[in-house]
Structures are given as structure tokens and as C-alpha cells.
Design a protein around this nucleic acid. Sequence first.
DNA 1: TTGTACGCGTTATCAA
DNA 2: TTGATAACGCGTACAA
Lengths: 392, 392
Amino acid sequence: MKLCGRKAQRTRAHGLHFFLANMHTCSLASKHDTLVKESIQFNKFLHSGIWYRSGMTDTSKKPPSRPRRVTAKTVADLAGVSRSAVSRAFTPGAYVESEKRRRILQIAAETGYQPNALAAGLKGGQSNLVAVFVGDMRSPYDAAFVGQLTRRLIGMRKWPILVDQANGQPEAALDDLLRFPLDALILRGGSMSQQIVERCARFNVPTISSGRPVEGPGVDTVCCRNADGLRRLTELLVQRGCRRFGFLNGPREFYSSSQRRTGVLQALTQAGLPLVAEARGDYTVEGGHAAALELLNRHRIDALICANDAMAIGALAAARAVSLDVPGDLAVTGFDDIDMAGWPIFNLTTVRNPIDQAVDAIIHLLDLRQAEPKKAPDRIDLDPVMIERGTH
Amino acid sequence: MKLCGRKAQRTRAHGLHFFLANMHTCSLASKHDTLVKESIQFNKFLHSGIWYRSGMTDTSKKPPSRPRRVTAKTVADLAGVSRSAVSRAFTPGAYVESEKRRRILQIAAETGYQPNALAAGLKGGQSNLVAVFVGDMRSPYDAAFVGQLTRRLIGMRKWPILVDQANGQPEAALDDLLRFPLDALILRGGSMSQQIVERCARFNVPTISSGRPVEGPGVDTVCCRNADGLRRLTELLVQRGCRRFGFLNGPREFYSSSQRRTGVLQALTQAGLPLVAEARGDYTVEGGHAAALELLNRHRIDALICANDAMAIGALAAARAVSLDVPGDLAVTGFDDIDMAGWPIFNLTTVRNPIDQAVDAIIHLLDLRQAEPKKAPDRIDLDPVMIERGTH
DNA sequence: TTGTACGCGTTATCAA
DNA sequence: TTGATAACGCGTACAA
């Protein structure tokens, strides 16, 4: 058993002179019309971040593809201490003589050294990487969701890898992604197809599905009570005198679509009213416009309930196109309460699908599972909020 | 009618007690009716992904916090081959007897083994991680940009870590992020403050700045010819008879703001016309509405050029509020050509800041630098496209 | 307080 | 074609 095998690599060429030589060639490469500026840049970069290239492999026939990061070993040599001292200098509670720590951090700053998170994660079991799956970033709701979630995750030093489901071949890409030891998988399942969500949930990575309940060990769920929201909204419309209802449904494979439809039907059944007309859109403004236009041309209704705000906004344009006054001739409502819904030009009556609460819940579930990885799946249900504006 | 009034209503009535109460009932509910299913699920998961826990550390006093991933060693033992054989089975061009490879892959599939990308990156020098910095996901332009870029990156198996600059303390977070050996840093600099952009560019990670030119070795740039775009647009308005111009500027610290203003001034100077009025918004619809409202109340103008589409859309509402007909009394124009600009309700005359071309350019620069890491900085300039619609 | 040695999971090299 | 072994960069138990 060879214990001191690493000692063999003492023949490395390094030291400050090496850096300078390296920097020199670098600055030559980028020489151009700004010669004076260059030297300023040079000094600036000397103190902010330096690439270290192994001297040994430099002479080999292979092109030294990419300069390597500065490593703890380099800093240790430069500071005349052991590599573990450098590691300790970067560990909050560790024992290092304060003067020595100061010197190490000084040199680290000059060389731009940062502990390699990948190597650290390899040992510690935590990568601090989290995958966030989302349906389509063009959807205002998804975009807002991602924005808020991202901020929260970064605040707790988890780094979100964003995956847009609209990719061509998610299957192969998914496998590649799961080669990373992710701390968690967050699915904005409400806007994703069943297939993808279920597939994701089968990997043994702690998973949180938002917007679609998923069964499976280690899979927690955050859900909005979709049916409740549209049931109450429909009741309100009935109470306001609407009698001939139309429903603009979302894509078949989205969970929220069927949930929301259920709420409408519950209220209508209760009131003894029929669903006069129904159409399907794709949750976009354009799709909603087209679907609503056709529906309004075929049927006479006095209320059009849309499965989300984007389609409702498209429907408003459609109503205008066929000269229907909103809300005089026709009530139009949405779901989600995206920012746009509140703009005076739309002033859309809708149901708020609370993003901030959903994100809070996700973070909470993340904490819980991190504390106890093998706990039973949890589920948090969120109550939607009626937002009465001017289109009903 | 106040557009930005809604921001004030931040009702955070929900705290931890809410979640706990909610969760308790829910988890009980879902656990209750699926007792039988549970064991089936268990078996299913046994064959789709297995966590392997080291037998040695199991007996130690520490709580075995998280089950470990299946590793190549495990698969090798199960298949009765060496670790290297497993590694080779997953390497496309490697020598493994086809029958042996088949067996290895079979067992890998059963155990859910995937090579650990972190460990592979540690060795190979490529992490396949890319950081994407963006101003604010609530901006439709940034959201669309991120969506397209994400899809392209994932297509080439680079994984985007999304960082929303709107975070509170980006400084500390930034340091933490850079502990990852990122393959590249992509900055949507047009919507970020100078400070952040320059700070990012100082790390010796291959960097691509989109929307703001940045000097530095290893920093490539993709830029839209902002000034050109608004110069041509202004010329068009002059030609159409506009004489009293107002300009709705963007945030001071955004590069695109001053660029776009320059274009307007060039055209006006050329035509011998003054800039009658000027105001600053924050690139949001709400901000644009407020700024435009005040500007229109103070000055009589016949053309309002806005530095981006979002503000222009806010300005349209402001014009309506002060009973100005667009385009009869007032021309209103934007910049970017976000989806919304094309909606019939807005039908906004604008200048397209081509996202697809920008993303293409970014990917191209990424490839170039990957092939030759030390090459001189490159810069690609994009030509904006006039989009004449109905507001001029 | 400091340094040595080992393990994390991979890929690459080299000898068999 | 295969298996042993050396890196990769880090944290850390352990000995000094």
C-alpha cells in the first residue's frame, strides 16, 4: 500500500513568476488598439482573478484546452502553508492562526481562488443544485413564478438550473440532467404534461410538484384549490344574473384544466344551469383569442369563464371583435391574476393563484425534507382569492 | 386609475402555523387512502431507482442524513466487473465486449445508476454548467430571452443556472455562485446595472455580455445597434410630420437607455428639431404609465418615443387617460418588439430587438471560445428591425 | 494549532 | 479487451 504516492508530484513548476509569464501571453492575445488601457487591465486582473495552468502538461502534444482554475494547492504553496490550512481558512469554525488566515485570504483574493463547489459537494453529499422545471417561459405566470422562486432559492444558496419543458427531446436531456446529484427537483407541474411530471417524480431525488399532485415516495406537493376558485367565481356570476355560460378550457394534458372545469360544473349543476358552450385553448393569449372568437360566433352566451388569464385577455379582444360589450353583453373572467390582469386596459375579474404563497410553501417543504429525507410525502393546499374587477 | 397601486397590497397573513395546520390535515388525508398502493409503489421504485447506503457508516452515531446515490462501484459489484468496465460502458467510443456492456447497462437501469456529473467534471475540466444573469424575470423581454436561451443551451447539454439580479445582496451570492467551475457566464447586460456586469466580467470565466459591451480578456459581446434603431424610427416620425418630440428614457444605470436616447438626439439634431420633453421610467409598464402621465400633463408633444415596449404600453394607457388620440394626436413608439406589442389592442409601432439572433450569436460565441479559450474578445452587432404598426 | 492521509466518484493511462 | 491505479480538488479525522 503506497501511502505517499502524491509526494511524487513535487516537480510542478509554479510560483508567482509563472503567473506573470502566463498573464503576459494572455495580454498579448488580446492586444489591440488600446495599448495603455491594456496594462491597466492587466494589473486589475492580476488582483482579481488569475488562471493557473499546470506546467507539466503544458509541453505535451495535446493543446492545453482550457486553463485550470486556481486550486487550494497553489494558494498553499504561495502562502507557504499546507493545503489543509487553506481549506480551514475558508471554513468558518476552523482553527487557523488569525495572522496566517489573513495571509491566506489575501493571497486567495489576489489569485482569485475560490473553493471548488463541485469537489466540495462530491465529499459532503450536498451539491446545492436544484432543478426547476417549467412549462413555458413565455407564459407570464410561469415567468413570474420562476422569478420569485429563483430569488428565494438563491437567497438560501441553492442554485436553480432552469429547464424549459418546451424543449424538443426532453427524454434524453432529462437523463443527462439527472447525472448531477441534485438536492431537489422542483416541478411547476400545473403547466407541464402528465408524462414529464411522472417521469421526473420517479427518480429518487427529493421532488416538489407545484400545481399538480403526484404520488410517490419523496414527492411533496403544493396545490391551488382550482375547483374551489372557479366554483365560487361561477356562483358569483350566477348571482349577478348570468345564465348562459361558456367555458374556455385549457390543454387536455394539463392538470389545472380539468380541475378548473370541475369547479365550473359544480356551481352550474348546483344552480340547475347548463354549460352552453365549451372550447379549448392553449393557455396563451393568441390561442385564447382564436378559441373565443370561434365560440362566440357559434353560441350566444352571457358569461365566458376562461381557464387562465392569458386566454381571458385574448377573449376580451375577441369580444371586442364581435362587438360584444364587456361586461354589458358578456362577462369574461380569468384565473391566476397575473400582473397584466390588473392593468386598467384589461381590468380583468379573476381568481388569484397566489405565487408568493406557492413559493413559500415550496421553500418550506424543501426545508422539511432536507431535515428529514425519508419522511412521508406532504401536501399543501392553497386557497385562491377572488379578485373582482370590471369584466363581470 | 392607478396602475402601480397594486404593488402596495402585500398581504402576508400566512406564516408557519398556516402551513403546519394545512399540511397536517392534508398529509393525513393522502396517506390514509393509499396504504395498499404504498407497497406497490415501493416495489416499483425498487426497480426504477435505488438508493444505496454505505454499510460502514450506517452504524455510526451520526444520523445517516441522506441516502447516497448509486455509484459505479455498486454496479460493478453487482455485474461482477471492474469499476472501469462500468465507466467504459457509459463512454461512447470505449472498448467493452458488447455482451458485457449490455449486462452493465441493464443493471445500471435497474438500480437507476447514472454517472455522477460532478465527479466527471472534476476530472474532465468541464462542468457543463453555465450561469445566466438577467435583470428581472417580470420583464417580458427578459423572460422571453431566458426561455429561448435556456432551450438552446439545454439542447447542447449545457445547464443554465438562472440568477435574477433583483436579489437583495448579489455580492455575497455572486461569490458563492462562482465557487462552481462554470463553463461560461452569460449576462443579459442590457437590463443589468453597470456595477454587476463589470463585477461579473472580472472573474476569469469565459463571459458573454448581451446588450452591453464590456471590456476584458475573455469577455465577448453581443449588442443591438440601439442608436441606429431609434435614429431611424425618429427619422420616420419626422417624415410623417411629427415636430414636438418627447422621450421616455429608461433607468440611468442601464446601458441601453443612453444608447437609445443618443439615436433620438441624432435624428432630431439632423432635422433641426428640439427634444421638447423628457422623463425617466423604470422599463416597466407601471413605471412607463406614471412617467408618461406626468410628461403629457406638463408638455404638449405630438410624438412620444419610449425606450422600451413595456413603457410604451404604459404610455398608451396614459394617453388614453388624458384623452389624447393615438396616433391622431400623439404618436407612441417602443423598442424590443415583445409579443405584446403585436397584440391588436396595442398594435405598437416599435423596433425589433431580435432575441433569436441574439441567442444565436451567444451560442456561436460560446462555441468559438470553447474551441479557443484564449482568443481575443469578439463582438457581434445586431441590426434592429423597424416594425411599423398602428401607433404612429 | 498544524500537517498528513484518506475518501468522495469519475475518467484516463498503462500494463497485462 | 480488461482491471489496477493515478489523478481531479476538496473536507476532515487523526496524529503530531
